[in-house]
Structures are given as C-alpha cells and as structure tokens.
C-alpha cells in the first residue's frame, strides 16, 4: 500500500496523461458509434424484421473476444489508434442501435399522426419530433456503450493505442518486480476513475439536452 502511494506520488503526471489518452480514445469511438448507431436505428426502426436483424448483428460483434478483434484490426489496418477506434466503435454499437430503435418506436403514434397531418416532411418529422423525443433513451444507450468500452479500451494498449492499458500490460510484463502491483492497480483504478468521470458527464449532458416537457 505504501509502495502504491509512493509510486503514485512519483508518476502522477504520467498517469494523468494516460488517463486523458484513454478518455479521448473512448470519446472518439463513442462519437463515431453514436453517429453510425443512430443512423442504423433510424434506417431499421420501422420494420420489426430489420430491427431484429440490426440488433442481432451488433450483438454478434460483442461476442467476439476483444483480443481477437484487436488482432484482426492490426492485420487489416495496422497497429495504432485507428485500429483501436474502429474496434471500440464496433463494440459500442449494440446499446446505441438497440436504444435508438426502442426510443423511436416508443414515440406516441398520435404525435406522429398529427405531425404528418400538419404537413411536416419526413425529414422534419425525424429531426424535429422523433429524434428529440427518443433522445433520452438514445442517450442511455450511449452511456451504457461508454461504460462497456471504457474497460475494453484498456486492452487497446496491446495494439499500441496507448491509454491506461499501458500500465496494466507493463505491470503484467514485469511480474515479480516491485512496480508490477502498483502499475496494475493504478492503471485499473485509473480506468474506474475515467468511467466515473464519463458517467457524471452523461448525467450533466442528459440534464442539459432533455427538454423540460419530457423530463420526469
């Protein structure tokens, strides 16, 4: 425990740097996944068959072991950030697609009918009515997806994407040395901290972006 304290005191700035790297990796993947996931959701939600197909396919991605997917990405794209972001984006899709579909399907049919009856175009209905109403549910999906990939992102260090995984893998490589445990523990705690920070961030985003009329 004392060793950990000394270790942290000494390497605090480096930990911060890795945490920021981790955070950026996750956020990049989440932004991409949100765009792609919402787009897929919008395209499929009207058809029950397409909706289950999209959910099943994105769920399948999640069953691929992360090490294997990162490995595949290295083969296709090469080492580095780019591979990591692609893999993390793929992992983040399921909750976002599923919640987009649920959110859009949950819009009151009467609201849809009146919007259509007033002559709003399909585009205006989607952007001004359906997506804003589905937004709280979509955001929940984004939040779940984020929690999911914060931990998977630690493994991305393995393919040279940096982040807090670096220390965890370092610690594993130096098994037996005095710094092994402090490295692994502070790397792990860093991941947990990043997850907490992001969660708080989503609570704020949720507050700010949910109109008063649909807040409970």
């Amino acid at each position: 425990m004392q060793a950990l304290g000394e270790f942290l005191a000494r390497r605090w700035p480096q930990l911060l740097e890795l945490a920021v790297e981790h955070l950026l990796l996750v956020l990049t993947a989440i932004v991409l996944a949100t765009f792609i996931g919402v787009m897929i959701g919008v395209l499929v939600y009207r058809s029950a068959a397409l909706s289950s197909l999209a959910t099943a396919m994105t769920a399948t991605i999640l069953t691929i072991p992360s090490l294997a997917l990162f490995g595949l990405m290295v083969v296709w794209v090469g080492l580095g950030d780019r591979s990591a972001v692609i893999a993390l984006t793929a992992y983040a899709l399921l909750p976002i697609v599923r919640n987009t579909v649920t959110g859009l399907q949950g819009v009151d049919p009467a609201v849809n009918e009146s919007a259509k009856g007033m002559g709003l175009s399909a585009r205006a209905r989607l952007l001004r009515i359906d997506l804003p109403l589905a937004w709280p549910v979509i955001l929940t999906g984004v939040r779940v997806a984020t929690m999911l990939i914060v931990s998977i992102a630690a493994i991305a260090a393995y393919i040279g994407a940096g982040g807090l995984g670096n220390w965890i893998f370092d610690g594993l490589a130096r098994r037996g040395s005095v710094v092994a445990m402090p490295l692994i523990i502070s790397g792990t705690l860093g991941v947990v901290a990043v997850a907490f920070i992001l969660d708080g961030f989503y609570i704020v985003v949720g507050r700010v972006t949910t109109p008063r009329g649909i807040r409970d």
């Binding site: 009151d108 009467a110 609201v111 849809n112 009918e113 009146s114 919007a115 259509k116 009856g117 007033m118 002559g119 709003l120 175009s121 009515i129 804003p132 109403l133 109109p211 009329g213 649909i214």
Partner: peptide, 20 residues
C-alpha cells in the same frame, strides 16, 4: 405534405409535441 399544410387536422388523442 404541401396539401396538408393547407388543411388543419385535429385528432382525438390531440398529439401535441410533448417536448415543445
């Protein structure tokens, strides 16, 4: 769509937009 903008439409369930 353009036709519907010339015609008012009121339904039993009203269908006001709750977020507006």
């Amino acid at each position: 769509d353009r036709l519907r903008r010339r015609i008012g439409y009121v339904i039993q369930q009203i269908g006001l937009f709750p977020h507006m």
